[in-house]
Design a binder for these strands. Structure first.
Lengths: 329, 329
DNA sequence: CTGAAAGCGCTTACAG
DNA sequence: CTGAAAGCGCTTACAG
């Protein structure tokens, strides 16, 4: 039989209201009654019913969603499809859970103000730095990283299984007879990017091929890199990339260089953003469940807020390959 | 403003009872009223309150907890400390959540009977095979693997981050000047074991040392293997193992061979079971949060049962190294 | 097939 | 400081 506040109340000879007050550490209880109630609780092995608790509470949780300036602008302009979807997932979850949230840039000058009154934080995006994480951890309120993780941290996070997704994608084409696939790797310190590259390398190694990784950063000229790949490795049959936005750019570059996609060179993306479907040719890529990522993170934060459990976990979403037209079959 | 069943009822001009019936697909609603209610719902963007729903439902969920014969016996005899703790965690979570559960062996003859009436399953233990997973997936009810994962499966699972834990442990001693650490690796197809070995190898490679892996299986004679390690590699300063129970055995073997632990050879475990603390010498190991693993898995299954989200995820718990006396500092 | 009403286990003004 | 009572948003016998 489940123990309820009613049972405690009966044993301690008080009302359930008082039990609730003791349970929630209200100051308006005399030390004597508090002890009585505490003893009754001891003797009963009570665990509160979270459903009832949450239903009875009318208060809303105030959540802060922080991201880098880049992501923040991308969300505002509705340009950054990936994180737009993630935010949608967050929104969906919170909308049914008595949570209000505000999105802000962690790079903004008035950070202090954005943090004020918030009871928990979601830090969204691969660009979130150690410094930012340290700062938010120091606040002492629950924090969940979304689409980001940094080695060595014990912190709650929700990421996609980019390693396995990229591995599956590359292996798929290697199994079909491809032998030379290059990889465009964004060197930004982004957990996902690294995982994906690792997956690419594993697939290549397994077949006995040497990975052909071309690193780049935000300052790089994509046209030049594309050209270099073709010059240095004319045998390249396809170029895999760390994300769809890069893949889309590479397709443009290839076209500019007079190459046909996929006939001369194939291109693969990662993320499966909306434009991946409508691009010409439609992009072969890996689907990241962006909304799920958002709602999963929101859920985790909510659980943390409700003290459901304590130890930090890394939650990793499986990914699916989606084969379209940008790589010849 | 949040939409409630009351609002739907008002618009559709029915009672909330009827709304609830439509929402839950009860057959006892005329097609006409159903349509009215459905239209009202459409117009309102309703999302049900899970707290209220769960509170109102008095029904208990019936959960099945399956494990291999080995684990099952180990739990019954209260011998297998690791999974005993995991089960405790499951128990703790379910006890406050209207869930009844039964533990059974997936290798038993009357499997069919154990499955009957269950609404969800937890498959506990590294020994759970592909065949078993396939079978349970085919039932079409929520399944969560606990302390197990098999590559290629898209299935919910909760595991410990053995890779990073073992890496941290080995690195800790390598940083202290250790140069030759051997590794005893159980070849049973166990996700955790493999992850841990990988962590060991990463730490060794990073320092420029060659991993020294000694595989074994249930049929192996541990004394012989221990002897072989010492003969083939007299320079070995410590033996790391894939789990505490093995480490404890190795300590015995070393003693039998006239070696002192940790003075002649150090020994490291993994899991931090209870006897790790009381053994002589107390075991240096990595702590897996066993109860959390159980409660996290139970929670995930519960969420699945409540349709909270759909995509399978891998949940990975961080691990901590615990330095005791079985390795010289 | 449908509605009025009780109940799930908590919290929290309100009154004292 | 404490209790009686209403309410959170659902579900479900029960009666019709």
């Amino acid at each position: 039989m489940k123990v309820r506040t009613k049972d405690i109340a009966r044993i301690a000879n008080v009302s359930t209201a008082t039990v609730s007050r003791v349970l929630n550490g209200s100051p308006n209880v005399s030390e004597k009654t508090r002890q009585k109630v505490l003893m009754a609780i001891e003797s009963l092995d009570y665990t509160p019913d979270l459903f009832a608790k949450n239903l009875a509470k009318k208060r809303y949780w105030e959540i802060g969603i922080g991201c880098t300036d880049e992501v923040f602008r991308g969300i505002e302009s509705r340009d950054y499809q990936f994180y737009l979807k993630v935010i949608e997932g967050i929104q969906k979850y919170f909308s049914r859970k008595k949570c209000n949230f505000t999105i802000f840039s962690v790079d903004s000058k008035n950070l202090e103000e954005n943090i004020k009154g918030k009871q928990g934080f979601l830090l969204v995006g691969g660009g979130v730095t150690k410094k930012t994480i340290d700062f938010f951890q120091s606040i002492g309120k629950p924090v969940v990283l979304v689409d980001q993780y940094i080695y060595g941290y014990e912190i709650d996070c929700v990421v996609s299984n980019g390693f396995y997704g990229e591995y599956k994608l590359i292996k798929y084409f290697l199994d079909k007879g491809y032998r030379s696939i290059a990889y465009l790797f964004d060197t930004a310190t982004h957990f996902s990017y690294e995982q994906r590259r690792l997956g690419y390398e594993k697939a290549m190694y397994e077949k006995g091929y040497t990975p052909l990784v071309y690193p780049f950063n935000e300052k790089s000229n994509m046209l030049e890199i594309t050209k270099r790949i073709l010059e240095e490795h004319p045998e390249v049959e396809a170029i895999a990339t760390c994300e769809d936005r890069v893949a889309l750019k590479v397709i443009e570059c290839l076209k500019a260089l007079g190459k046909r996609v996929p006939d001369d060179v194939g291109v693969m993306g990662f993320d499966d953003i909306e434009s991946a479907e409508t691009s010409d040719p439609a992009l072969t890529t890996v689907n990241v469940f962006k909304e799920e990522m958002g709602s999963l993170a929101a859920k985790r934060l909510f659980d943390l807020l409700n003290n459901e459990d304590i130890r930090p976990t890394q939650i990793s979403l499986f990914t699916n390959i989606v084969i379209r037209d940008s790589v010849k079959l």
